[in-house]
Structures are given as structure tokens and as C-alpha cells.
Computed example of a mutant assay.
Amino acid sequence: MKLRDIAHSRTGDKGNISNISLIVYDINDYVLIKDAVTAEKVQNWFGDIVSGEVVRYELPAIGALNFVMYEALGGGVTRSLALDIHGKGLSSALLDFDI
């Protein structure tokens, strides 16, 4: 099953840091994503894109995980040569993760 089957996501950015929130549709699925989507797995998933640390924050009351990914945007909006300089597509890429 893909994450997109049980969750949605939002992405933000600040400098060279990307922030992805992963929010379950049904609170009963929170434990599933909490166990399946670790910071290490997200780091590996984005392998060549994220060269810094990935930190996961848990928000069980709202059924969400928040991933802060350092050195993830090719230097940031004013430096990056990427087509998606804000990294908005990263949330969709995470939803393609198999659990």
C-alpha cells in the first residue's frame, strides 16, 4: 500500500530546509505510519536529494508526523537550479512511499 492511500501531506521550506507534514485521514492509521515511516527511511527515500539530517516530530493528537529535512533544496530558493526550488513536489514523492 502507498502512503497516499491513508494519508495526505503538505510541504514548506525555509532556506535549504524542507518540512513535510504527513497526516493520516483516519486517526486509527497513525500507529501504522508511525511505525513504518521513520526518519531513516525518509532519508533513504530521498537519498540523492537530501544531503543533511532528517528529524521526525510526532503529533499523535492530530495523527501526523512532521519531517524536517536539512540540506534538501539545493542551497535554497535563491541558489537552487532545480525546477521545484521550493520543494513542493517532495510531499507527493513521499506519498509514493510503500508501507
Rank of each mutant, 00 (worst) to 15 (best):
D26N: 13
L65K: 01
I33K: 03
D98G: 08
V37L: 09
N44C: 12
I62T: 13
I62N: 09
Y30F: 10
T38Q: 06
R10Q: 11
S21R: 12
A82C: 08
L95F: 00
K34F: 10
L90W: 01
L90V: 02
K34E: 12
K34P: 04
I17D: 08
G52A: 07
L94Q: 01
I6Y: 04
R4W: 10
K34H: 10
D48S: 15
G76C: 04
V50F: 05
V50H: 04
F67N: 00
E40M: 08
N66Y: 06
E40P: 03
E53T: 15
S80L: 03
V54S: 04
N19D: 07
S51C: 11
Y70K: 11
A7I: 05
V68T: 10
H86M: 09
V54W: 05
L81H: 11
S51K: 15
I33P: 00
I23N: 11
A7G: 03
G47F: 12
I17V: 15
I49W: 08
S18L: 15
H8T: 14
H86V: 06
R79G: 07
L3K: 03
L3S: 02
K34L: 15
A93C: 12
R56S: 12
V55P: 06
Y57P: 06
V42N: 03
I27C: 09
A36F: 13
F97T: 03
W45N: 07
V68Q: 05
D5T: 13
